[in-house]
Design a protein around this nucleic acid. Sequence first.
DNA 1: ACGATTTGACCGTC
DNA 2: GACGGTCAAATCGT
Length: 286
Amino acid sequence: MKQHNSRYLPQSSPSDRPSFVSDHRSAMKEIARGQSLVTQLRAIVLPALQADQRCELVAQMFQDILDCSSKAITELQLQHQSDARPEDALVDDKKRVRRISSDDCIKEEGATANPHHQHKRRRSDDLVSLETPVPHYDGRQWRKYGQKHINKAKHPRSYYRCTYSKGQDCKATKTVQQQDESTGTDNPVMYTLVYHGQHTCKDNNGVNSGTDKSETSSDSRSSISTTCTDPCDHQTSLGDNKLIEKSADLVTKSMYEPLDMNPFAPLDLDSWELDTLLRFHLEPDN
DNA sequence: ACGATTTGACCGTC
DNA sequence: GACGGTCAAATCGT
């Protein structure tokens, strides 16, 4: 019998107890778990709220929580990188973290070089990673610009940039990669999200999406129309997606119908994501 | 027609 | 040379 939580939480394995590892590592893991929980909770709560100011406040609070934990992780990573090997990095994308950290002080963001050939490795202090079963419900609009098979990874990595990257020169990007170990029937599909840079854009309603004050604010107002069409993220082909989305759409519609979802209508959590969450939360232990 | 996604090619870093 | 990140033409969806 599995514990209920084990169905949807990134796990801290017993072997990760801090007896042989640094406090940094266990602290970062716990924070990451918290981020994952908040992400999932947000995906459930926001669409169910009435569209009013309280709703916006809730969304803002969710984002603030994520901001806090992200900053905490960043701080821990910076400290950790200075006194430990980078292979203790939070995500399993170890090689990349190592490369980024070595690249850290060499080139700065916004280099005036050719805009089409900016440096490929990015600063680690612009990097925030988290694990979640709902990779696309993060309150942002993203546009996919690439997908690549990563060495030794079963699933391709998808590359997204802010929808407003052109119009507002927003530098925020993110990568989404399905975790290899999440393919079992018992475990939820987990994704590793890595965010780079901060949003400098304003969303559709002219609300600053967050820069220094609050890295990713205004969840409640921005539309979450991130369309997830890459097969890896949905675990299905595009054609299958349509069928799944249709059936799942019935579920989500029946949930949402009583509500006036004005500000959240665009949020429109991908039905498969909500379905995934619901299954993990509602199904009895197996 | 327009915007988003896909995908092969290219480039920088290691 | 391998690898990861980005570009941009082709393709797709609305």
